[in-house]
């Protein structure tokens, strides 16, 4: 049986003025049904672009897929005509956004937004809202987004994404606008729903600790590429790419009290900045001459010429 989602060689470009630059380069991974894959990386590493490229809903309409393939249950999405792709949005691919305040239309009632586009028999706003644990679904359905709390709005957004029981759920930092306790609740809800319904879930986040807790596999992105992809357990035990190791070391939750917070020296390359060799080399303690000359490709889950040793 083929994977639910298979991406390979994906290149996406953004426009800046009249010029174009690659925001994603040669990105590839596979996701099984019922699996949770976390994509972690710094701001600007291309993780949101990766998510947006699947239903082809870029924030900037000028962005476009340059090369590569995105297969959903065996069907090629890259190059699929807009009307056919639209039929898949909502029904096969559900999206959860970061900021529910911005993602919900301020002048339409929540219930209407959740059931919009559903067939009449499926359009039960109360049931959909109750499913995501909203305490008073009737009140929430009749309310406008600004009348709900942040956590309730995020739940409503989740109900909207789950409404048509899509096979694939894409969540772009679904908790970073919430406080940690609420964030954990929403994530548990999200992962629970994915597991129950056998959905595949791609969870984009910049918190590696959160990714390790909730995902089965984790893809680490840097400057538009996946630099390491491994199971959460493996990555937590022994990261192989120096960037993954640095990210883990920089996780505040893993820093012991009194210990110095291990920040990564330097800063990520600016969007569109192009250099030969490994993009992480200038910040990498293990970089050698070869790293600045040649670009390492993702091989057996790690894109590095000198990976950290796997402990026996």
């Amino acid at each position: 049986m083929s994977a639910l989602l298979e991406i390979s060689g994906l290149c996406v470009s953004h426009a800046r003025g009249t010029q174009r630059f690659l925001a994603l380069e040669q990105v590839g991974f596979a996701l099984e049904a019922g699996e949770v894959l976390a994509v972690v990386g710094e701001s600007g590493s291309g993780k949101s672009t990766l998510l947006a490229s699947i239903p082809r809903l870029f924030a900037d309409p000028e962005s476009r897929i340059e090369a590569g393939s995105i297969r959903l249950a065996g069907r090629e999405l890259a190059g699929l005509p807009e009307d056919q792709l639209r039929a898949l949005r909502g029904s096969s691919i559900g999206l959860v956004f970061q900021d529910a305040q911005a993602a919900l239309n301020p002048v339409l009632r929540v219930g209407m937004q959740v059931t919009e586009g559903l067939s009449a028999h499926a359009a039960d706003a109360l049931a959909l809202l109750a499913r995501v644990g909203l305490p008073e679904p009737a009140r929430a359905a009749a309310a406008y987004p600004h009348q709900l709390s942040g956590g309730m709005r995020q739940r409503a957004l989740l109900a909207l994404a789950l409404a048509r029981r899509p096979k694939l759920l894409l969540a772009d930092e679904p908790t970073s606008a919430l406080d940690p306790v609420l964030g954990r609740e929403i994530l548990a809800l999200l992962c629970g729903a994915a597991e129950r319904e056998g959905m595949g879930l791609v969870l984009v986040t910049h918190e590696i600790g959160l990714a390790l807790r909730h995902a089965q596999r984790v893809a680490v992105m840097y400057a538009g590429r996946i630099v390491e992809i491994a199971s959460a357990a493996e990555l937590a035990r022994q990261p192989r790419h120096p960037y993954s190791a640095a990210l883990l070391a920089a996780d505040p939750a893993r820093t012991r009290r009194g210990e110095r917070f291990a920040a990564i020296p330097g800063s990520a390359p600016a969007a569109g900045e192009h250099r030969s060799g490994c993009a992480f080399a200038p910040r990498c303690a293990r970089a050698r001459e070869r790293c600045t000359r040649e670009r390492p490709l993702l091989e057996s889950g790690c894109a590095c010429f000198f990976p950290l040793e796997v402990r026996p």
Partner: peptide
């Protein structure tokens, strides 16, 4: 350019509905 327009598209709504009901209304 608002995010709720992308949300509306993510529901698979026809572009006409996205423009008239979600964008134009605001």
């Amino acid at each position: 350019a608002q995010e709720y327009v992308i949300t509306a598209r993510s529901k698979g709504l026809p572009e006409r509905v996205v423009i008239l009901r979600h964008a134009l209304r605001n």
